[in-house]
C-alpha cells in the first residue's frame, strides 16, 4: 500500500518520522550505554584471563541437544519436517556437514550468511579457538546472530527473486530492520572477542544452521518464512536468557540483558503477523536455549 492509498490514513511519512525519532533516541542513549558495558566487560575478561568463569557455569548448561532439536523441529512444523531431526541430532561435525550439503537449496542461508558477516564463502572465522567461560558464551551468541542474519538475508533474497509470491512492504521492512539489529548484536558480541584478543565469529551456529537451511529450502511464502524467523528469534532470546545465568561479569550481564528483550520483541511482532497471540507467555522459558558448550570446535 502506498502512502497515498485512500483506504488508509496511515501516512508513510508519519511512520517514518516516528521511526526516525526512535532511531535517533536509540543512537543517543542506548548505544553509548552499550559501548560502556562492552568496554567494562572487556576489562573484566582481561583481568580474569581467558575463561573468567568458574566450573559451576558449565554445570548450569547441561542442555540436551536432542531436546533442543526436537523442539525446534516441532516449532518449525511442516517446514522443517521430522526428517531434519535425524539429520541434525548427530555430532556437531556431522551437523556442519549437513549444513554444507543443504546449502545448495534455492533459498539456502549459507552463502547469505557469509555475505552478511563479511567473510567470503568457506572462510567463516571464529571456530577452533577453544574458548571458555564468558568468551564461550559470547562466541555462541555471535554464531547465533550470524544464523539470524543469514535467515533474514536468505528470506529477503528469496522475496526479491519472487520465490515467496507477493510480499507486503511491511514484511520487507520487518525483515530488513530485524536483520540490521541482529547485525548490531553480532558486532557487539564480536567486539568483546576481538578486544580480548580473539578472532570474531563469522560462522553460523553449527547445530541450528542445518535446520534453518533445510527449512529455508522448503519455504514458498511469507507465512512459512515468518514461522522460521519466529523459531530463530525465540531461540536467540532464550539463549541469551540462559546466558544471563552463566555470564559472570556484570558488564557482560548488562550486554546480554540489553539484547534478550529485543529478540523477544521481534518474536512478538512475528506472532502478531502470523495471527497468533503476540505475548503467549507470562514468563519466557529457556527450552530452546543453545548451550555454549556446543561451541567447542
Amino acid at each position: 500500500m502506498s502512502a497515498n492509498d485512500p483506504l488508509s490514513h496511515l501516512s508513510e511519512a508519519q511512520l517514518l518520522a516516528m521511526t526516525a525519532d526512535l532511531d535517533a533516541m536509540h543512537h543517543d542513549v542506548a548505544l553509548p550505554a552499550l559501548t560502556d558495558s562492552l568496554a567494562e566487560w572487556t576489562d573484566d575478561i582481561r583481568s580474569q584471563g581467558d575463561g573468567g568463569r568458574d566450573a559451576d557455569a558449565d554445570r548450569q548448561l547441561q542442555f540436551d541437544r536432542r531436546r533442543f532439536l526436537t523442539r525446534a523441529a516441532g516449532t518449525a512444523g511442516g517446514i522443517a519436517g521430522v526428517a531434519l531431526l535425524a539429520a541434525c541430532s548427530s555430532s556437531s561435525s556431522s551437523s556442519t556437514s549437513a549444513a554444507s550439503s543443504s546449502s545448495a537449496s534455492s533459498a539456502s542461508a549459507s552463502a547469505s550468511a557469509t555475505a552478511a558477516t563479511g567473510a567470503p564463502a568457506g572462510t567463516a572465522m571464529g571456530e577452533g579457538q577453544m574458548l571458555s567461560g564468558d568468551l564461550q558464551v559470547v562466541a555462541m551468541a555471535a554464531s547465533l546472530e550470524n544464523s539470524g542474519i543469514a535467515t533474514y538475508m536468505a528470506g529477503i533474497k528469496a522475496a526479491t527473486a519472487g520465490k515467496l509470491g507477493t510480499v507486503p512492504p511491511a514484511v520487507v521492512t520487518f525483515a530488513e530492520t530485524a536483520m540490521a539489529q541482529h547485525q548490531d548484536h553480532q558486532k557487539a558480541w564480536n567486539a568483546v572477542l576481538t578486544a580480548a584478543g580473539k578472532q570474531p565469529v563469522t560462522a553460523t551456529d553449527p547445530v541450528i544452521q542445518p535446520t534453518i537451511n533445510a527449512a529455508l529450502a522448503k519455504v514458498t511464502n511469507t507465512t512459512q518464512l515468518a514461522e522460521l524467523a519466529l523459531l530463530v528469534e525465540n531461540t536467540a532470546g532464550q539463549t541469551y536468557q540462559n546466558g544471563l545465568s552463566v555470564i559472570t561479569s556484570a558488564a557482560g550481564i548488562k550486554t546480554a540483558a540489553s539484547i534478550q528483550p529485543v529478540e523477544f520483541q521481534h518474536a512478538a511482532i512475528l506472532y502478531y503477523v502470523l495471527g497468533k497471540y503476540p505475548v503467549p507467555n507470562a514468563f519466557t522459558g529457556v527450552s530452546l536455549a543453545r548451550p555454549p558448550s556446543d561451541y567447542h570446535t
Binding site: M1, S2, M18, M25, H26, L31, Q265, V273
Partner: peptide, 28 residues
C-alpha cells in the same frame, strides 16, 4: 486495522519496524 492477524498487505512499509525501535534495550 487492529485485528489479529493485522491486514499486513494494507500496511505501509514503515509499519514493519515500529514495534522494536532499539537494537539494544535502553535503561535510561
Amino acid at each position: 486495522d487492529i485485528t489479529l492477524p493485522p491486514p499486513v498487505a494494507k500496511l505501509p512499509a514503515a509499519a514493519g519496524a515500529v514495534g522494536f525501535p532499539n537494537a539494544f534495550y535502553p535503561t535510561t
